[in-house]
């Protein structure tokens, strides 16, 4: 039987050769600005291709994206690579990760003028530049839910037979967003609120994709997502079926930011890119590709669908330091409230 070895052995070099064909081609000769980001940013339909084309027209450089699964994976990747990272710019962290990112000591102050930035909650930072934002919201199916919850309290205390799919704060940023939202509204009473809400929760998924998949498949009539989610369905699928519920207390916000790495060899180019993210050119690309709100003025008015979106009366945002300090304790609390028999 050892001889069967040699048959198998003969195939291995062929397979390895095939593998090497999957490797990417080498880069060009202009200066290369490497931007680490998340996957949906660089997808065909994402902002990446348009941003690359627009920036390369102004910079006489090559803009290279390296994309990982999400903002959290992005930070992990930077931690793993440390000071020797190829990244010049990291684009796609959110405000909850900002403190952890600063603690790595890998980021440099951007030193650019961010006066153009206009985000609710007034985020302003010497290291990170906001490029878009989105308020979290409960998105519901109008064909199933006739009277959507009007407040977080409504959601918590409402009919437990109308289910919602939420994300896990241990593994996903929207999940953490809901945790912080309930904290912001209920304070120390948050565990009691979770204990009540628990009956309405269909399931807790590892990430946004799974929860949203359950929602669009009709399994859950509500999902924890963004105020901007309905814009996608209105513009790309021409349907008003999915809407976000406006909550009286206000909405928690997720602000996406980018920053420059200390180790960059193209500091001027990196700063030019960070400034570019606040330009009307970049900002006009964001709404209909990243499905988030622009963080600065756009060249043209936003598409009509964006005018129909919920505009929150109040914005909740905890300071990155508070989040970093309390996250573990609050997650433990959440586990306790959600696992009680």
């Amino acid at each position: 039987m050892r001889k069967t070895h040699s048959v198998v052995l003969a195939f291995v070099p062929a397979a390895l050769a095939a593998l090497s064909l999957t490797l990417p081609a080498a880069a060009a000769d202009k200066p290369v600005l490497t931007v680490y980001t998340y996957e949906s940013f660089t997808a065909d339909w994402g902002p990446g291709p348009k941003v690359k084309a627009a920036f390369e027209q102004t910079c006489d450089c090559t803009l290279d994206f390296v994309s990982v699964a999400d903002g959290v994976a992005l930070l992990t990747r930077l931690k793993l690579e440390g000071a020797s990272s190829d990244a010049d710019v990291a684009l796609g962290l959110d405000t909850n990760l900002v403190q952890e990112a600063k603690d790595t000591g890998l980021f440099a102050e951007h030193g650019i003028d961010t006066a153009a930035a206009r985000v609710p909650g007034g985020f302003s930072d010497p290291v990170f530049v906001p490029y878009d934002y989105g308020h979290f919201a409960v998105v519901y199916d109008t064909e199933v839910i006739k009277t959507p919850p009007k407040s977080l309290k409504d959601l918590v205390e409402g009919d437990p037979s109308q289910k919602i799919a939420i994300e896990d704060p241990r593994t996903s940023t929207p999940g953490l967003g809901l945790l912080l939202w309930i904290r912001s509204v209920y304070g120390d009473k948050a565990p009691e609120a979770w204990a009540k809400l628990r009956n309405r929760i269909l399931t807790v998924t590892p990430g946004w994709s799974e929860a949203y998949g359950l929602f669009t498949k009709g399994e859950a009539p509500m999902v924890f997502s963004y105020v901007t989610s309905p814009a996608y369905h209105m513009m790309e699928e021409k349907t008003d079926r999915y809407q976000a519920a406006r909550f009286e207390e206000g909405h928690y916000i997720q602000i996406e930011v980018s920053g420059m790495l200390k180790a960059t060899k193209h500091k001027a180019l990196a700063q030019q890119f960070l400034s570019f993210t606040l330009s009307p050119q970049f900002q006009s690309i964001i709404p209909t590709t990243n499905w988030m709100m622009p963080a600065a003025a756009t060249a043209e008015p936003l598409p009509e669908a964006f005018g129909k979106l919920v505009s929150p009366s109040k914005t909740f945002l905890m300071s990155p330091e508070d989040v970093a300090k309390n996250r573990q304790a609050w997650i433990r609390e959440w586990l306790g409230a959600m696992s009680m028999n």
């Binding site: 946004w208 994709s209 369905h233 790309e236």
Partner: peptide, 28 residues
């Protein structure tokens, strides 16, 4: 794949998840 991922290395499940991650359930 998830950790190494870059736009140059895309497998079929990664393609499925990337569509799911940007509202494109039907494509997924």
């Amino acid at each position: 794949v998830a950790l190494f991922g870059s736009q140059d290395l895309v497998t079929l499940p990664w393609l499925v998840y990337s569509r799911l991650g940007s509202y494109r359930t039907q494509d997924a």
